[in-house]
């Protein structure tokens, strides 16, 4: 092989050493793989994993309330502070409740879109659907949150539309509901829920559609041949097969809602959500240990969630 003239236009004089190097790497395949893997592994291992471990370690330190300095000694005091105060537990419950509601809504709104795109659209229509879901997914998160600030404002388009259609009473009734209401849509849980659902919806649609695409048409014909009505086919054939996809999507919607702090900051009440609690404790309060403990909470919740999702077969649908 070394005596063959090269068929490639790169036979420069200095190529001899390169050629020997490349032959060496070819012979030592494992070494070559290791060399390729080393830079990304070092980066992610040191920068990312190292940081995560440092964060975890911080949750076992505590803040000296007199000096405002972090005491670098092992202690469970911070964890006790997190789990013993009712206000902190409220934050966790509130965030998890919102995440569950958003996930449910994303499933309900996303499924018809995914179902239509997977079963009834032409190849051209499918491409349009795909772009129609991808563009909002990838376009600026902040801009999309801002759009809702415009829409939900007291003087904004929703109030205007309600006035024009004579449904202001409905809007007022909605806003006067005890917990979820507020002075205007942009300062209420209803508004926050709408924005969360809007922002994370594409994450639900894509895996659901992927799972629906994989349902073989022959299965539906078989169900019909066996005498199932369309409704029965849907209930007993399509839905069980699509379910892992829906669970896969719910991993994203749930996890993203748990960790978000921008949306509750811009739209919503003054009551804190998990992400905000992390942000405030590390920022103005300078209490990095408590912030670290708070940020471990979503990790633990997601670990449990992922374990359940794995049982439901969601990982094959990702």
């Amino acid at each position: 092989m070394s005596t063959a003239t090269s068929a490639f236009p790169l036979a420069t004089p200095g190529a001899g050493r390169l050629r020997r190097l490349s032959t060496f790497l070819w012979r030592h395949s494992r070494l070559f793989t290791l060399l390729l893997l080393l830079p990304p592994l070092l980066w992610l291992g040191i920068v990312y994993l190292g940081s995560l471990l440092a964060l975890l370690a911080h949750s076992f330190f505590r803040l000296d309330s007199f000096t405002g300095q972090i005491v670098y000694e092992f202690t469970l005091a911070t964890w006790y502070e997190l789990l013993s105060q009712p206000a902190n537990l409220d934050i966790i419950r509130r965030t998890a409740g919102m995440a569950a509601a958003v996930t449910l809504a994303c499933g309900l709104i996303g499924f018809p879109i995914a179902y239509y795109a997977a079963r009834f659209s032409t190849p051209r229509g499918k491409a349009l659907f795909y772009l129609g879901v991808m563009l909002p997914l990838w376009s600026s998160y902040l801009v999309r949150v801002y759009a809702w600030k415009l829409i939900l404002a007291k003087e904004g388009v929703i109030s205007w539309a309600a006035e024009r259609t004579g449904t202001s009473w409905l809007l007022d009734a909605l806003l006067s509901l005890p917990v979820v209401g507020g002075p205007s849509l942009s300062i209420s849980y209803i508004g926050m829920f709408l924005v969360f659902t809007y922002i994370w919806l594409p994450y639900m649609i894509l895996p659901t559609q992927a799972a629906l695409e994989r349902v073989p048409p022959s299965l539906l014909e078989a169900a019909a041949d066996c005498g199932a009505r369309p409704r029965q086919t849907f209930r007993y054939v399509v839905l069980p097969l699509a379910f892992p996809g829906i669970v896969a999507g719910s991993i994203f919607t749930f996890s993203l809602t748990l960790g978000d702090y921008i949306i509750p900051y811009i739209i919503g009440t003054s009551k804190l959500f998990l992400g905000q609690a992390v942000y405030i404790h590390q920022g103005t309060a300078g209490n990095v240990p408590l912030a670290a403990a708070f940020s471990v909470v979503p990790i633990v919740i997601m670990a449990v969630y992922l374990a359940v999702a794995r049982r439901l077969g969601a990982f094959d649908a990702l």
Binding site: V47, A54, G259, G275, M302
Partner: peptide, 14 residues
């Protein structure tokens, strides 16, 4: 896969 806030605060504390 983890919420961005965790990446953020992990890097910051490091």
């Amino acid at each position: 896969a983890l919420p961005g806030i965790i990446t953020g605060i992990a890097l910051r504390s490091t």
